[in-house]
Write a protein that binds this DNA or RNA. Structure first.
Length: 703
DNA sequence: GAGCACTGC
């Protein structure tokens, strides 16, 4: 499929974006709920996902116990084995122990990768208890900012991203005899890169054993990918779940979710409800309406405890979902995708599935990211339904028809590697000596346009040379767990003697969340507090630096954050990243230097990394990007939103209601020639309407 | 004059 049709199909599938038009329409729809409180939805019960029979008989033992010998034989006879173990099979805790008992740890470690930090920690803790050893001794874990292993460690649980970092110093992972890639079906970016690397690695290391653990649906795919590796199936522990679909398509899933929740509450046996929605705003709306409706119904209906949960909700409030429901009451948890895999809530008997979630898409043509409300996949729908059958038989109410499930939904969620900026992925792979990326055997190949865009960027940053090999700068950059533009900014800061300031800015920019807190009812106060960090119109990057340094002067205080409308959680995270970067900077031979008063030096370092992210003011007040010209605007949250500057550099482009530049700083155009003479010529500045000169010679792009 | 799915290094 060509790039254009690929993207168009993505956009067609998306239902709507954030936008004022949409909001009006939706709030109008909400009214409907109040006007017609007796509206009901027609559901059709179609199918039951079967539970496992073993459950009733052998509740006390893990299913995997019966497969010990089979697992060991499969591993002995094959280099690669795919294990299908449903939730609750015990594969993650038991298989590494079996391998240890069978002697696989005599000449190397058994490593087990997890997509998430908490999973790595909790599984390691559990296994160390089972083996009666201290955590960090024979059994340990390794995650970012925390290495809980020792020389004794033979069973090591770690995040998949951590393995990639380990490969910087041990490219063939020679300290391991077995690697188990757990939850491979989740297809995180790191898992996909690992699988690609491992496919090569098993050829180079015939002594290495590889286990891929996946869900049922993807097992064949993994098996085929690894030259038809055998598949071993281990049953899980699951209760049956009844699936109900709506009879007719629902145009408004928010309304439908509310009605369905109330119907379950009024007519179904006790048991808590989990409702899958797409975001915070939606959850707050549904919460409000549900509470209002319940209040109006008064004593006609039992108590309904409404608990919202999403990642940005403070941890204290998130904890509310785990409080057991009192007798006679019912709990309804309104959740984002966070409850699909990350949080497991006991006592859920009913699931209401909107059929949508938010997904981030990166458009390589424009370099813009957007968050779209997007239909979930069948795999995702199964996972959601399964959340109702953890502690007893469950029911799942899907707010879509069986026809749209069967015909419209994709089998699997589009893997992250096909919809994200790949610059960092390329840098990692190049650093591991994988050069021919356009022909690299990915489990699912990213669109060529994504690869090409990433290669182009790395070339512009000087990380790759004319023939596509990693340069010295590129190798330095690869050490940093950051977007390559941020890494380049740090590497360049050496020359401008401001590495100390630049790593602070890089740490803050790489924290996903905004550090500025802006509660709905205190927007004015929050905006005022924010402006205190801007001296004159020095720009958003410097403002971030000011925030961090003020926080530091106030002993990293939580209270200071509250007083200044700063997110404490984000700041702590930035501090951890900053500490890590400080170590790495020394490792790659960059001196820690400070020039706090030299704004020009800092801006030049920033330009070195973000040389492609420049924009120029137009007569009509909007901006035009310099490379790959397109119209963009300064984001209203920027300190420069009210102060037009002729030339700016921006951190990122996001497409929401408009094309916005986020994190903007002014620059002098002559700095561009000084810093990037290979990329900027006088012509670029003089006349933007002329076609941009192309950089000559990128032979590795020829296909 | 904004619009904040979710991980991870």
């Amino acid at each position: 499929m060509s790039q254009v049709t690929w993207e168009e199909s993505r956009l067609r599938n998306a239902t709507w974006e954030y936008g004022s038009k949409n909001k009006r329409q939706r709030s109008h729809d909400y009214k409907f709920v109040f006007e017609d409180p007796h509206r009901q939805l027609d559901f059709i019960k179609t199918s039951v996902i079967n539970g496992d029979k073993m459950l009733q008989k052998e509740r006390k033992t893990l299913p995997i116990y019966h497969y010990r010998e089979q697992v060991l034989r499969a591993v002995q006879e094959n280099q690669v084995v795919v294990i299908v173990g449903e939730t609750g099979s015990g594969k993650t805790t038991q298989i590494p122990q079996y391998l240890h008992e069978a002697g696989y740890t005599k000449h190397g470690k058994v490593g087990c990768t997890q997509p998430r930090r908490v999973a790595a920690i909790s599984v390691a803790a559990r296994v160390s208890r089972e083996m009666g050893v201290k955590l960090g001794h024979e059994v340990g874990y390794s995650i970012r900012f925390e290495d809980c292993t020792s020389e004794k460690t033979v069973l090591k649980y770690m995040t998949d991203g951590m393995v990639l970092r380990e490969m910087l110093s041990d490219p063939k992972l020679e300290s391991y005899s077995v690697l188990m890639v757990d939850e491979a079906h989740e297809r995180t970016l790191s898992t996909d890169i690992l699988l690609g690397i491992f496919k090569d690695l098993v050829r180079l290391r015939s002594d290495l054993k590889l286990l891929i653990s996946s869900a049922t649906l993807d097992a064949e795919k993994f098996s085929t990918y690894f030259n038809f590796a055998p598949i071993l199936r281990v049953p899980g522990r699951r209760y049956p779940v009844e699936i109900h679909y709506t009879k007719a398509p629902e145009s408004n899933y928010i309304d439908a979710a509310i009605v369905t929740t109330l119907e379950i509450h009024a007519t179904q046996a006790s048991g808590d409800i989990l409702v899958f929605l797409t975001g915070q705003e939606e959850i707050e709306t549904v919460e409000e309406i549900l509470k209002e409706r319940i209040r109006k119904l008064g004593t006609k209906i039992g108590e309904l405890i409404v608990c919202p949960v999403y990642a940005n909700l403070p941890t204290e409030l998130q904890a509310k979902i785990f409080v057991p429901t009192p007798d006679g009451a019912r709990k309804v948890v309104l959740a984002t995708n966070i409850a699909e895999t990350l949080l497991t809530i006991d006592g859920i008997k009913y699931v209401v599935d909107s059929g949508y979630s938010k997904m981030k898409w990166y458009n390589p043509k424009t370099g813009m990211e957007s968050l779209l409300v997007y239909p979930i996949s069948k795999a995702s729908a199964m996972q959601r339904a399964g959340r109702s059958g953890r502690t007893g038989p469950g029911k799942c109410f899907r707010l879509y028809t069986i026809n749209s499930y069967q015909e419209d939904m994709e089998d699997n969620t589009v893997p992250e590697i096909q919809r994200t900026n790949l610059a960092n992925v390329i840098l990692i792979l190049k650093n591991l000596g994988i050069d021919d990326l356009l022909n690299f055997d990915f489990l699912d190949s990213p669109p060529q346009e994504l690869l090409r865009k990433a290669l182009e960027l790395l070339y512009a940053l000087g990380a790759l040379n004319q023939v596509g090999e990693l340069t010295k700068v590129g190798r330095q950059m690869a050490e940093f767990p950051l977007d390559p533009m941020l890494s380049k900014m740090i590497v360049a800061s050496d020359k401008f003697k401001c590495s100390n300031e630049i790593i602070t800015i890089a740490a803050l920019l790489s924290v996903g969340n905004s550090v500025f807190y802006r509660p709905k009812n205190k927007k004015f106060l929050a905006d005022n507090a924010r402006m205190n960090f801007y001296q004159g119109d020095s720009g958003d990057h410097i403002a971030l630096l000011n925030v961090y340094n003020s926080w530091k002067e106030n002993d990293y205080s939580k209270q200071w954050c509250y007083d200044n409308f700063i997110q404490f959680r984000s700041m702590k995270h930035a501090r951890d990243i900053r500490d890590q970067l400080t170590c790495l900077v020394e490792r790659v031979g960059i001196e820690l230097t400070s020039s706090l008063c030299n704004l020009e030096a800092m801006k030049k370092a920033i330009i070195s990394g973000f040389l492609l992210h420049t924009a120029r003011l137009q007569k009509n007040g909007s901006y035009w990007t310099v490379k790959h010209p397109q119209k963009v605007h300064v984001h209203p949250s920027s300190g420069l939103a009210q102060v037009p500057k002729r030339w700016v550099i921006y951190h990122e482009l996001v497409l929401t209601t408009k094309e916005y530049m986020r994190q903007v700083t002014e620059l002098k155009p002559e700095w561009l020639f000084e810093i990037a003479p290979h990329y900027y010529m006088l012509k670029d500045v003089e006349d933007l309407r002329k076609k941009m000169p192309r950089v000559a010679g990128r032979p590795w792009l020829k296909t």
